[in-house]
């Protein structure tokens, strides 16, 4: 090979490599343990302003932590059972929690005071999610009693019970346009419901999982849904039509949680297989894979995916921080 051909080859190779996504830069996250609960950490949720996150635990408490430094701010006590899920209100002033004690509780984030105890489910409450309207008027909850309930936060009244799942309902999410709610269940389906308080039949039933569906979540533009199941499968759905856009094996064990970044395509997944993974769901392309050495119950991230919050089954609360800013995810107001 002559010298000029060799140079051309090197230049072309350099061009091709440099034009590829900078995966090595995307992979560059550092893990720190910021604190711990006295038992397994089951839930994590980052607030709207990306300044705080909450964790819920088998130790029956909720903890609030600062971002980006991960300092423990407060411990909220009151539940008489594991805290399975937490959700900040849109204005970050309130926090909802769902527990094994069959209650949904509303907390004042600033003071840590318990404001409301919502009773009505006849089984443990597994999922909670605040409505995305400006005043966060409603909270949705799911339970082992197979129902989805909507609660008026101000009065603490149960305003709607959605029935149809044939097994325990695992998680629930509001769309960001406020029009629909998605719930997922051990019956392997996802049901889409109208937020109109007079419509009780599901608008769509999404079938595609072949195992209990453990979580479901809208993208911030409300155009996509992400769901994960007990076999480690993740499905990306068209939220309007219910079509499957992507379906991939993300993990080798129970994948309890997923969260979208603000670009509506970057997705973090966490599993009991000890891995936290970051995906570009347009591929899907794996952007980051970190083995934490412990099972992961729940994950969330800040809008630009520069920090991933992780709830672990050894009781630790961990942060994965991106070490560079070479390819930040487009920032947009929004949250998990």
């Amino acid at each position: 090979m002559n010298k000029s051909l060799q140079s051309t080859f090197i230049l072309v190779a350099f061009y091709l490599i440099s034009s590829m996504p900078l995966l090595s830069q995307m992979l560059n996250y550092t893990m720190t343990t910021v604190g711990r609960h006295n038992d397994e950490v089951l839930a994590v949720f980052v607030n709207e302003a990306n300044t705080m996150f909450a964790t819920g635990s088998l130790d029956e408490t909720i903890k609030l932590w600062s971002l980006p430094d991960g300092k423990e701010l407060n411990t909220l006590k009151g539940h008489l059972g594991a805290v399975y899920n937490v959700s900040f209100s849109g204005n970050d002033k309130l926090l909802a929690s769902g527990s094994e004690d069959m209650t949904v509780r509303i907390w004042d984030v600033a003071t840590g005071k318990e404001l409301k105890v919502l009773r009505g489910h006849s089984g443990p409450v597994i999922g909670v999610y605040f409505s995305q309207d400006d005043n966060s008027a409603l909270v949705a909850s799911t339970s082992f009693d197979k129902t989805v309930k909507l609660w008026d936060v101000a009065s603490g009244t149960e305003v709607k019970t959605l029935r149809g799942h044939t097994e325990a309902t695992n998680n629930v999410a509001y769309s960001y346009d406020g029009k629909t709610i998605a719930s997922c269940s051990d019956d392997s389906t996802i049901r889409i419901w109208s937020t109109d308080l007079h419509t009780t039949a599901p608008l769509m039933i999404l079938r595609g999982h072949h195992a209990p569906v453990l979580t479901v979540l809208y993208s911030f533009d409300s155009k996509k849904l992400a769901s994960s199941d007990a076999d480690g499968m993740v499905i990306i759905w068209d939220a309007k039509t219910g079509e499957i856009l992507r379906k991939f094996k993300a993990h080798n064990d129970i994948t309890q949680d997923v969260a979208f970044a603000a670009d509506n395509k970057t997705l973090v997944t966490g599993s009991l297989d000890h891995h936290v993974k970051l995906w570009d769901t347009d591929g899907p392309n794996l952007l980051m894979d970190m083995d934490l050495g412990v099972g992961v119950w729940s994950v969330d991230l800040v809008s630009d995916a520069s920090i991933i919050t992780v709830a672990c089954d050894d009781g630790t609360v961990r942060l994965l921080k991106r070490n560079d800013n070479t390819k930040p995810v487009k920032t947009k107001k929004g949250r998990k």
């Binding site: 029956e60 008489l80 059972g81 094994e100 004690d101 069959m102 009505g120 006849s122 089984g123 129902t147 309930k149 909507l150 009244t157 149960e158 305003v159 709607k160 019970t161 308080l197 007079h198």
Partner: peptide, 25 residues
């Protein structure tokens, strides 16, 4: 106009009925 929701669970009045206290007391 609003609609609210309230499910009701009734306990049988029968000797031997075991009422589980579903909370970790």
């Amino acid at each position: 106009y609003m609609e609210y929701s309230k499910d009701i669970n009734l306990i049988p009045k029968k000797v031997g009925t075991k009422i589980l206290i579903p909370i970790k007391l």
